[in-house]
């Protein structure tokens, strides 16, 4: 396309000519992108904290006191075979006793060695999916060699529920904001279209293709989207670091996600989202105009 440069220039010219309206729509778009971005980043961090909590939220399964060594080994293999189990670590009763060494007098500790050890062999287990927490837990409890299981299942499941609610709310908010953005962009472009209807009529009369007529408006939409995306990126960057600083990079002892590991995803998502919204928004109003009234040069 040899006139690509011309079409791009026309798009930029149009943004400048309607700069007040352009600024207004950039402001609204920035707001939409920021809310979407904040929701997504909050979600990323909640997810990260949640995973860290999940890994600390271990389950301990105790073997029957009279279980033979073979039975205990079998129990380990059985637990490992459960699909939701991500890790199993054997803890012998001697190991456990060793942990409580400080709680007993030396004399008593010596008596409790060997045959007299009151502790039970156990397995420290971690799960993949905490939503299946209670299910997996009962599978472990059902094993013949298991005597008891200790776990704090309330926390895990509440976290899983919270994450789901947040995700649904986030999706709803994002969809609404995308619709608002489309509406704003298509209205701005509609104004430009209106102010340039003579040019459009002449273009139609001399036989410009719809592609050629549409292009400057699409560029205008894309420019608005891109400008909003870059502005939002800058604001997000500053605000994110500030917020992270306020929390000292951690919540409830769990590390938050640093912006360094996220910046390119945020930038790419903003730019793609902004430009797509701009292009789609202008496409909507342009398509409608060409269909309804733009076909008539006389």
């Amino acid at each position: 396309m040899r006139n690509f440069g011309y079409l791009i220039r026309e798009g930029f010219r149009s943004v400048w000519k309607n700069r007040l309206m352009a600024m207004a729509s950039i402001c609204v778009l920035v707001a939409c992108i920021l809310i979407t971005g904040a929701a997504s980043l909050a979600f990323v961090n909640i997810n990260s904290v949640f995973e860290q909590v999940g890994h600390q939220n271990v389950v301990i399964a105790y073997a029957q006191k009279d279980a033979t060594a073979e039975e205990v080994t079998q129990m380990g293999a059985d637990i490992q075979a459960i699909s939701n189990v991500s890790g199993v670590e054997f803890l012998s009763k001697d190991d456990i006793l060793e942990r409580y060494k400080g709680s007993f007098s030396e004399e008593l500790f010596a008596q409790l060695q060997g045959e007299n050890n009151p502790m039970q062999d156990a397995y420290v287990i971690t799960f993949y999916d905490l939503e299946l927490f209670s299910e997996t837990l009962s599978q472990i409890e059902a094993l013949p060699q298991t005597e008891s299981v200790s776990a704090d299942d309330g926390l895990a499941e509440k976290l899983a529920q919270l994450r789901n609610i947040l995700m649904i709310a986030g999706v709803v908010v994002v969809v609404l904001l995308v619709l608002v953005s489309l509406f704003i962009i298509s209205n701005t472009i509609k104004l430009t279209v209106y102010s340039r209807r003579l040019e459009i009529a002449i273009m139609k009369a001399v036989g410009a293709t719809n592609f050629f007529i549409r292009m400057p408006f699409v560029v205008e939409g894309a420019v608005l989207g891109l400008a909003s995306a870059l502005l939002s990126y800058g604001i997000t960057w500053l605000a994110y670091d500030k917020v992270l600083g306020m929390f000292d990079g951690a919540v409830l002892g769990m590390d938050l996600v640093a912006f360094d590991t996220l910046w390119w995803i945020v930038l790419a998502a903003y730019v793609i989202g902004g430009v797509l919204t701009g292009v789609l928004g202008s496409g909507i109003s342009m398509g409608r105009y060409l269909k309804d009234e733009g076909g008539a040069p006389i």
Partner: peptide, 26 residues
């Protein structure tokens, strides 16, 4: 097509008004 009301773009020079018809057909 020649229109009764000329349909010239006021913000463009004479040259650009005529050139416009060529530009938009590529």
């Amino acid at each position: 097509i020649v229109f009764q009301d000329f349909r010239l773009i006021q913000t463009m020079t004479v040259f650009d008004n005529v050139a416009f018809a060529m530009r938009v057909v590529g």
